[in-house]
């Protein structure tokens, strides 16, 4: 039967997410994960690798990334540099080929997980340039003519922050999951995983305050799960009394990262006191 992902001790996955991972595994299709920042898109790949006991390769996409960079990069300058000295054989181009995250996962002798992080950061055409490699799971190094084919098709997990729309041809090939923002009950479980020793009342109060913050429509950037976890950590270290939370928000800087939002909040508080 198929490998089955049900989350890990540190990573709580909803039924829908588990199912999406398992379908992607069974059908050997890439899994595209979207969701608000801080909902654990990137952590998913680590959790899946850990749960399935597979090596994880990562490729963090940047605005200047080209599709080929994930497979390999040919370091011409290093070779030119080495050509001045006799200590390395510059005729051997292979030593100047460096494999990227995707390339490494294809070459891996064991089944692996590969994370293509924030694919929407790159150029609009970027995902289309990857279609062939993702379909065939093979690539050719042009400089040497070597053809590399994956012995085990890796599980490809792709994350997107929705900065750009992805091309249809690409979407059609993917299994898709949108990580919804956790509700308060699930959030309590997530917090428990990260702060097992924290008092129940503090967690309750902090979560209540956190969701209240998220409902403020004026905020430019709403605080996310990871920020809540940091905040609770700060509250614990600072020995903050849960009852104070209804009155004020200590260590606000861990939750709110934009100056405008701090101003908005200060105005809001002032209005509330009046």
């Amino acid at each position: 039967m198929f490998a089955n992902f049900t989350g890990t001790a540190d990573y709580i996955a909803s039924i829908e997410l588990q199912e999406a991972v398992n379908v992607a595994l069974a059908l050997q299709r890439p899994l595209l994960v979207k969701g608000e920042p801080g909902t654990g898109k990137t952590l998913l790949a680590e959790a899946v690798a850990q749960a399935l006991d597979r090596p994880l390769f990562t490729w963090h996409v940047k605005s200047t990334s080209r599709a080929q960079d994930g497979l390999y990069v040919y370091d011409a300058v290093q070779r030119l540099h080495d050509s001045r000295f006799e200590d390395r054989d510059v005729d051997d181009i292979r030593q100047y080929i460096r494999f990227g995250g995707l390339g490494q996962s294809f070459l891996s002798p064991d089944p692996s997980v590969v994370l293509i992080d924030e694919i929407d950061k790159a150029d609009l055409e970027f995902p289309n340039d990857l279609l062939h490699e993702l379909d065939r799971m093979s690539f050719t190094v042009l400089e040497t003519g070597d053809r590399h084919e994956a012995t085990h098709r890796p599980l490809v997990i792709i994350t997107s922050n929705n900065e750009k729309e992805l091309p249809d041809a690409f979407l059609r090939r993917c299994i898709f999951h949108f990580i919804a923002f956790p509700d308060e009950a699930l959030m309590a479980r997530i917090v428990k995983v990260h702060h097992p020793a924290v008092r129940e009342t503090l967690v309750q109060e902090a979560i209540a305050r956190f969701y209240w913050l998220r409902t403020l429509p004026e905020l430019r950037k709403r605080p996310s799960t990871s920020e809540l976890i940091d905040w609770i950590g700060a509250l614990v270290k600072g020995g903050v009394d849960p009852d104070q939370l209804a009155e004020r928000v200590p260590y606000l800087g861990t939750l709110i990262k934009k100056e405008q939002d701090l101003d908005t909040l200060a105005r809001f508080e002032a209005r509330r006191r009046r």
Binding site: E16, Q18, E19, V23, A24, A26, L27, L32, C174, F176
Partner: peptide, 29 residues
Amino acid sequence: TFIEALDKGLVAADLYRFYALARATLVKD
């Protein structure tokens, strides 16, 4: 893709998982 997943017997008699499977394969936004 959806039919292929069904063929592979990915769904037990659990409507919730069936729903999750259908959504993951058919909806991309």
